[in-house]
Design a binder for these strands. Structure first.
Lengths: 165, 165
DNA sequence: ACTTTAAGTCAGCCTTGTTGACTTTCCAAG
DNA sequence: CTTGGAAAGTCAACAAGGCTGACTTAAAGT
């Protein structure tokens, strides 16, 4: 692998404080931009970021159970329920009793749910696509590598659970 | 600039929906991990993420004015003030009357403020450093490129305002 | 029959964001 | 030198979305 280090070193990166701080700030600003577009859309529909996250992962894994969604989102049952309830009442999400295990509720998006999810996702993907095109394929690979390394083993497991590319 | 056209093109990016969604999820999970370590520390001190952000940027640009900080953080005056007040009361931040313009308050960290900032930052930098080392220098460059492209011109301006690497 | 798991609910709390209205202090331009 | 606007700060009220704790119901598992 590309080496930059002194003699014999694997890859001595010059990780100055400054560089790391710039990375931290880049995360901060980029995340803000990253959520800004869907946030605008959500507001028009009277929803918040929490609703978006639920819609996203239900769309990704149709039929997932509440417990799984809980683990993926990393929030409490009570917190999720508030959000999930409105989505179900509004007819965006459907909760079907599990076939093998009748205690489980398997979550699905309705047509309306899929429509909103698509709109939200499209806003977000638009920005992501633009950034990818501006930065180029090499950069994209690096971007993903760093993010995956940053999330640590536990979250990486959840990350990989999601329908693969 | 990098082309994506078919024959002879630089590098055709296969920006499938799936890839973009994976990128979105990577941001989601990575950001969670990214804030988790300082969050733990903050909790012990009775502060929240908002305090961290204020400390970070005051440390970065000692003597910045409230208006500037407002712009950088992207929150309302009232929201910032609540946080800033406690930090000042607790002796972590000092607010000095501007020399040229006496309406301004220039913000500085006290010794105690610097100490906490260092601890918080160190937690965060630790994770960042590990991710960087795991991914390698090439990946790091790409990571930054994509994030910068993602934040858009307005935030990028603020980003660059911060003390350069 | 008993225990555990999945889901859901009620109540209450906290942080951090928002609006809107208003004051004080100070600079700067007319 | 007055007056308009900018910088800071404050009060009040509200909402989203986290949290804990306690408890119920239904269905599995043992």
């Amino acid at each position: 692998m590309a080496d930059s280090g002194s003699p014999g070193g694997e890859t001595l990166l010059f990780l100055t404080d400054e560089q790391l701080r710039k990375g931290i700030e880049a995360m901060f600003f980029a995340y803000r931009a990253f959520t800004a577009d869907p946030d605008r859309l959500l507001e028009e529909h009277g929803y918040g970021r929490a609703h978006h996250r639920a819609l996203h992962f239900i769309n990704r894994q149709p039929g997932l159970t509440v417990t799984t969604l809980l683990a993926v989102l990393g929030v409490t049952k009570q917190s999720l329920n508030r959000v999930l309830r409105t989505l179900i009442e509004d007819g965006l999400v459907e909760s079907r009793v599990g076939k093998r295990d009748k205690r489980e509720r398997r979550l699905h998006l309705t047509e309306a749910g899929e429509a909103l999810e698509r709109a939200l996702s499209e806003a977000q993907r638009g920005r992501m696509r633009a950034a990818y095109r501006a930065a180029g394929p090499q950069a994209v690979a690096g971007f993903r590598q760093v993010l995956e390394a940053m999330m640590g083993p536990d979250l990486h497991k959840l990350y990989q659970m999601m329908k693969d590319e």
